[in-house]
Deep mutational scan, measured.
Amino acid sequence: NQASVVANQLIPINTALTLVMMRSEVVTPVGIPADDIPRLVSMQVNRAVPLGTTLMPDMVKGYP
């Protein structure tokens, strides 16, 4: 099973992602692959992302 990117904390709308905000976890449904975490750094979320939420491609501005 492939690990996905999961919010490690509440991420407010328009926040630029940092490594501490994300963790990898095997979840269903599958979200953004954990391998993409380095690419996500400094990209902004377009909505508030609660703790434990799987990051989906449509939540991150400019992804992929």
Rank of each mutant, 00 (worst) to 15 (best):
N1E: 15
N1C: 14
N1D: 15
Q2K: 05
A3P: 08
A3L: 10
S4N: 01
V5H: 00
V5G: 01
V6F: 00
N8P: 02
Q9M: 14
Q9F: 14
Q9W: 06
L10V: 08
I11D: 01
P12L: 08
I13Y: 08
I13C: 08
N14W: 07
T15C: 05
A16Y: 13
A16M: 12
L17Q: 00
L17D: 03
L17P: 03
T18W: 03
T18G: 04
L19N: 07
V20N: 11
R23W: 03
S24K: 07
E25K: 06
E25T: 10
E25Y: 05
T28V: 13
P29Q: 04
P29T: 06
P29I: 06
P29V: 09
P29W: 03
P29M: 05
V30P: 14
V30N: 13
V30G: 11
G31S: 02
I32L: 05
I32N: 00
P33G: 07
A34W: 08
A34T: 08
D36L: 14
I37L: 12
P38Y: 10
P38F: 09
R39F: 07
R39Y: 12
R39I: 07
V41L: 14
M43P: 02
M43T: 05
Q44D: 04
V45L: 09
V45Y: 00
V45G: 00
V45H: 00
N46K: 09
N46Q: 14
N46P: 02
N46H: 13
R47P: 02
R47S: 11
R47W: 05
R47I: 12
A48P: 06
A48M: 13
A48G: 07
A48S: 10
P50D: 11
L51P: 14
L51W: 12
L51R: 06
G52R: 04
G52P: 01
G52K: 04
T53I: 12
T54C: 04
T54L: 04
L55N: 00
L55Y: 00
P57G: 09
P57L: 05
P57A: 08
D58I: 11
M59Q: 05
M59I: 04
M59H: 06
K61H: 15
K61A: 13
K61M: 12
G62H: 15
G62Q: 06
G62A: 13
G62T: 07
Y63R: 05
Y63C: 06
P64S: 13
P64M: 13
P64K: 15
